[in-house]
Nucleic acid binder design. Structure first.
Lengths: 195, 195, 195, 195
DNA sequence: TATGAATGAGAGTTCATTCAT
DNA sequence: AATGAATGAACTCTCATTCAT
């Protein structure tokens, strides 16, 4: 088993356990045991628990990005469709991005200070995507704004981020999702002149 | 120093530390040290770390309730004003309800299973308040709904809960709050027939 | 409630709990709680846990003595009957002298060093009783020994003490008691010339 | 220092301390300190205090078995000699099996529930040995029983178990051992027809 | 490249005892 | 004569990390 396989094995087990039990309640011991590696091996490949977690989260974020990118680049949708699908997919993807969420939620500044960078990076990336969708809509004449592209995109981001709460954190997906479609319409209506 | 003072001292120190470091990273040792009490004293007054945390959270929730109740019972507002002020105050209050939030966020089901009750209780309480505001508005003819009072109140609750995310969790209060006023209007417009 | 009543209440609760959970696993807290007395009261009446236990054991030993004395002084039995009944009653009484036994068993020399006196006292007392029975038997011509009264009584004491093991300590009462009668006969036959 | 040495060092220190202070009054801290190992090392090698104790007791029991087996297999003795020597050696060995005894005596069912197995195993083992000795005696014509081999062996076991009390528990070895020879004869005489 | 034995600081909790009232 | 709040030492156990091999 090559070095890369070992690394991946460790990361994949760590991902599963962090996802299930969270950062604090997952021990290096358990990761090692389940990965069938020696505890020392984890420290050969990663400088500590924190760096291992960082790797796991970065993988998750990369996965999220690539799924969202598929929508942004999918020419089957018009801009309105892209926006709505983006929002819906984002909900879906975040449902499963457990570890990323732990970094948002946790007060554990000692360990997660470093996560600010990853979060900031993702925020910026999303802003770029949303802006790009809106700009496309404006260019094709599909959208006609009475707000700047940047402000509108910020508001949209605020709202979708807001929905992470009841949808993901509080596990109210099934409870609230019936309202989602209506809500989406209301929001888009309120935010754009064109309707 | 009477028993009540001691209890309060412990709770107040615990509140500060839980708020700052979270449940896991706050040790009974530190609470005792800073409160200038023996560790055993904490266990005289509370059966364990969990119960102490429970007390802290319950205090927080009671504080939230009483602040919100002031608005619901304030006859200076008309119903629309009450609703908007309720939403804004809620944001404000939740900003500081750090410990309550930890229980929403945490995956630590071992420790926080007991919090379901407190959360459920608060949810129900809020639903009652919102319904009461809306009903008042309907009775005075200020509101005219095309949804049932219950459904409307559920949607409002969903939205304000949703906003907890960016406002509280991610510390974006200052960043997003300029948009809040506009958002509130949009939402109320979208939800009520009368506009 | 007078002072004597309080003392007795404490002792009686302590007795019950020591009996059930042993010395170590019974806490002063629990004794106080169940006796409905303040913890401080226990320390008003007894200098510590140890002295309270001492009192409990002493009571138990006194109870044992008085039950055995009834047999020794009962003129309905002849000497052989007394001896056999003494042995049987001793088994029975010891079955329930849980706290006394704890002092025999425990390695806890710190706490139970003081128990040597109580044990020595009881041993001496029993030796006197057995000697008295045997002497009575000799005087009435019922017994005719080829050993001195003292040696014979020591052997009897050794045997009855020995039987505490399987009968009491190991909870084999029901298992071994069928053999008891036969064993008693064998022993008495082996020990005395008269058969 | 290899792993086996460390394990043995821990076990040997634990054995000494358990023997001296008993299970409850021996702390993991002290074992670690005296063994010159980190506390965590004890938990690396044993899952807890209980398992460490279990190991100690198992070693003791194994030692007892092998010493007794020497007698059972020693063809220098005839069957009567074996039986008597077995009984005497048993007394001797049990004198030093302090930890095994703690499990017999202790009321601490939480910790020692697991000991039932070890005890049961030893009981069964002894029954087999005694039966084997008796059968051998019967086959060589040395013994002629009016009881079944099984019942006779049960009675012998009861008696030797009984003698554990005064001999071991109460430290009366030196006091009572002068009587032992006579007692042994009496018992064997009482139990077998052939005398 | 990988191992796993060893570490030690720190965690939550228990409890006999003290003492001001 | 009685209280009960307060203490602090001692306990078992956890776990991220180190290091010789």
């Amino acid at each position: 088993m090559g070095i890369e396989e070992t690394r991946e094995k460790i990361v994949s087990v760590a991902d599963r356990l962090f996802r299930r039990f969270g950062f604090q309640k997952t021990s290096m011991d358990e990761i090692a045991r389940i990965a069938r590696k020696a505890k020392g091996s984890l420290y050969y490949h990663f400088s500590g628990k924190e760096e291992l977690f960082r790797e796991v989260v970065q993988n998750e974020v990369n996965g999220m990005k690539s799924k969202l990118l598929v929508i942004v680049n999918n020419s089957d949708y018009n801009s309105g469709g892209k926006l709505k699908t983006y929002m819906q997919t984002r909900m879906d993807v975040l449902q499963h991005a457990t570890n990323y969420h732990e970094t948002i939620q946790s007060d554990d500044h000692d360990h997660f200070e470093f996560m600010k960078d990853i979060r900031k990076d993702l925020d910026d990336w999303e802003r770029v995507q949303i802006c790009s969708i809106i700009r496309e809509g404006v260019e094709t004449g599909e959208f006609e704004l009475d707000l700047s592209v940047e402000v509108l995109s910020d508001i949209i981001i605020m709202i979708v981020k807001g929905l992470e709460g009841p949808f993901y954190l509080q596990g109210r997906y099934t409870e609230y999702s019936p309202y989602f479609d209506g809500l989406a319409k209301i929001l888009m209506k309120g935010l754009s002149k064109m309707y």
